[in-house]
């Protein structure tokens, strides 16, 4: 099963087929999510209209953790089973995940200022999210630091796996320690504590962010596969 998709040529064919579907899903879902989120959903009983920042903040934060988890799994598969496509997927995910993390921090600051009264605090949730951004940036820097790309991949895969401990820390920071950030509203044991009229735009935006990620991921993986071919061709030209 894995081996079938691990074949880059076959993957390229599937990717070109799937990509337009991801593009259209993103556009339609984001359109619906924006309509519900900005126009038809109600204001919050405590936070008023500012609650609308949630519809970009929360999906970005979820995707930041989702992308890192995906990267850790890919890096692990690449390290253990030496699947070239797994390494490529990890490398292609990093910049997108870094963007999501930045957006979660940025929109969080814009939400924190009017509600909490501060742009930033060093509580466990916010700090561990900042650590996640540094892990992404460190990975990108390390993966590109070596002349021999396979050595860069090894070193950066190890960094990703070590850094993975941060993901459960982000998720549970609000339960383990007291923080300024409130606990989870959607993904928790006793069901979401968020009204359906606000849960819908949130979920639509979350799925849209997810299909956006897959869309960009397919483009970046295709670009990486071609880049690898170029490298091989150049080596052949130099040596042959």
């Amino acid at each position: 099963m894995l081996h079938r998709f691990a074949n880059p040529t076959r993957f390229l064919r599937i990717a070109t087929l799937v990509q337009p579907w991801m593009a259209w899903s993103t556009i339609l879902l984001a359109g619906a999510g924006l309509y519900l989120g900005l126009l038809s959903s109600p204001a919050d009983y405590q936070q008023g209209e500012s609650v609308r920042i949630m519809y970009v903040h929360v999906p970005a934060a979820w995707m930041a953790m989702f992308c890192y988890t995906g990267m850790a799994v890919s890096a692990g598969v690449g390290l253990i089973w030496k699947h070239p496509l797994a390494d490529i997927a990890a490398k292609a995910t990093a910049p997108v995940g870094a963007c999501f993390t930045f957006l979660a921090l940025f929109t969080g600051a814009l939400w924190g200022k009017p509600m909490w009264g501060t742009w930033w605090v060093w509580d466990a949730r916010l700090t561990s999210m900042l650590v996640l951004l540094f892990l992404y940036l460190g990975y990108i820097a390390l993966a590109n630091a070596f002349d021999d790309p396979s050595r860069g991949t090894r070193a950066s895969s190890i960094l990703v796996l070590v850094g993975f401990v941060n993901v459960p820390i982000i998720k549970f920071s609000v339960d383990w320690w007291n923080t300024l950030h409130q606990p989870a509203s959607v993904i928790k044991m006793d069901g979401p504590s968020i009204d359906a009229s606000m849960l819908w735009p949130l979920l639509l935006m979350a799925v849209a962010f997810n299909t956006y990620y897959l869309w960009v991921l397919l483009i970046r993986i295709r670009a990486e596969i071609v880049a690898n071919k170029i490298r091989i061709l150049r080596l052949k030209q130099v040596h042959g």
Binding site: E49, V56, P114, Y212
Partner: peptide, 27 residues
């Protein structure tokens, strides 16, 4: 936006800009 426009709009605009730039750069 009930006085919160100055916080809500930058959130949405920056998110849109970052995601579109990422998409275009990848393409």
């Amino acid at each position: 936006m009930g006085g919160y426009g100055g916080y809500i709009w930058p959130s949405y605009i920056v998110t849109a800009v970052v995601l579109i730039v990422m998409l275009v750069a990848s393409q």
